[in-house]
Computed example of a mutant assay.
Amino acid sequence: MKVIAFKRELQGSGASRRLRNSGQTPGIVYGGSEGPVLVSLDHNALYHALKKEVFHSSILELEIDGVSQQVLLRDFQVHAYKQLVLHADFQRVDAKQAVHVKVALHFENADVSPAVKLHGATISHVANEIEVSCLPGKLPEFISVDLSNIDVGHSLHASDLVLPEGVTVVAHGADLTIATASVPAGHVAAEAEAAAEADKK
C-alpha cells in the first residue's frame, strides 16, 4: 500500500493543531540509518486506511516529497470521541533485517470442529493477533487458524499454528493461548436434566 506524506518543519501542539484544522495529520518517520523526519499526511486518506486490516500488518510504501521508502505503521493515536486521527508513527524497514510485527488471526472451520458439531460448544477467540518475526518480504497479511480439530475442554496455542515459511512467533516466554472450546453453562445443565429424565424412565 502506498502512503503520501510531506515534510513539516514546525512542531509543537500549536503547529499540530493548525495542521489538524487544515485536514492534515502530523506524523513521524524514524529508524534505519537516517534521523527522524516529521511529516504530515492527508487525514481522510489515513483515517480510511487505518480501517483496513492490511494497513496495520504490511510493509507500506511511504512517499515523502516524491521519494519513496519502505515503512511499517508502528503506532497511531485517535481522539477519544471524535473521528480524528491525532498522530501516526512509521518505522523504516531494511529488506535484510527481520521485523517484529503484530499480525491478525483469521479463524476458520469452527463449524466443523468436534466441539461445535458434536457438543454445541462455544469457541472463544482468546487472541485476535499475534506478534511474529520475519524479513519484511515474508510478512503475511494475516495468519489462518484452523479450528477443525478442536474439541471441548481443549485449547489451541501459538505452537499449534501453521506459519508461512520464514515466519516465527515471538513467544515472550509463554505459549500463547489462541482459542478455547467450552460448552455454555445453560447447555450443560439442560443436558444433565435430560440425562436425569432418561434415567427415571
Results as ranks from 00 to 15, higher is better:
Lys2Cys: 07
Lys2Asn: 11
Lys2Met: 10
Ile4Ser: 07
Ala5Asp: 00
Ala5Ser: 03
Ala5Gln: 01
Phe6Gln: 10
Lys7Ile: 10
Lys7Trp: 03
Arg8Trp: 02
Arg8Lys: 04
Glu9Ser: 12
Glu9Thr: 08
Glu9Ile: 11
Leu10Phe: 00
Leu10Lys: 14
Leu10Thr: 02
Leu10Pro: 00
Leu10Asn: 05
Leu10Met: 06
Gln11Asp: 04
Gln11His: 12
Gly12Asp: 13
Ser13Val: 08
Ser13Thr: 15
Ser13Tyr: 08
Ser16Thr: 01
Ser16Cys: 08
Arg17Phe: 05
Arg17Gly: 05
Leu19Lys: 03
Arg20Ala: 08
Arg20Tyr: 03
Arg20Lys: 01
Arg20Pro: 01
Asn21Arg: 14
Gly23Tyr: 08
Gly23Cys: 06
Gly23Leu: 01
Gln24Glu: 02
Gly27Gln: 04
Ile28Tyr: 00
Ile28Val: 07
Val29Gly: 05
Tyr30Cys: 13
Ser33Cys: 06
Glu34Gly: 13
Gly35Ile: 04
Gly35Asn: 08
Gly35Leu: 11
Gly35Val: 04
Pro36Ser: 15
Val37Arg: 11
Ser40Arg: 13
Leu41Ile: 15
Asp42Phe: 03
Asp42Asn: 15
Asp42Tyr: 07
His43Ile: 03
Asn44Gln: 13
Asn44Ile: 13
Asn44His: 12
Ala45Gly: 13
Leu46His: 02
Leu46Trp: 02
Tyr47Phe: 09
Tyr47Arg: 15
Tyr47Leu: 12
Tyr47Val: 13
His48Ile: 14
Ala49Glu: 03
Leu50His: 09
Leu50Asp: 11
Lys51Glu: 06
Lys52Met: 08
Glu53Met: 13
Phe55Val: 11
Phe55Gln: 04
His56Gln: 14
Ser57Lys: 00
Ser58Gly: 02
Ile59Tyr: 05
Leu60Met: 08
Leu60Ala: 08
Leu60Tyr: 04
Leu60Glu: 06
Glu61His: 06
Glu63Asp: 12
Ile64Asn: 11
Asp65Ser: 09
Asp65Phe: 04
Asp65Ala: 04
Val67Asn: 10
Val67His: 08
Val67Lys: 15
Ser68Glu: 14
Ser68Trp: 13
Ser68Thr: 10
Gln70Val: 01
Leu72Lys: 00
Leu72Pro: 02
Phe76His: 10
Gln77Trp: 05
Gln77Lys: 11
Val78Ile: 14
Val78Lys: 14
His79Tyr: 01
Ala80Glu: 15
Ala80Val: 07
Ala80Thr: 15
Ala80Gln: 15
Lys82Glu: 11
Lys82Tyr: 08
Lys82Val: 10
Gln83Ala: 06
Leu84Asp: 01
Val85Pro: 00
Val85Leu: 12
Val85Cys: 12
Leu86Tyr: 02
Leu86Ala: 11
His87Cys: 05
Ala88Asn: 01
Ala88Ser: 05
Asp89Val: 02
Asp89Pro: 04
Phe90Lys: 05
Gln91Phe: 12
Arg92Ile: 06
Val93Arg: 00
Asp94Thr: 04
Asp94Ala: 09
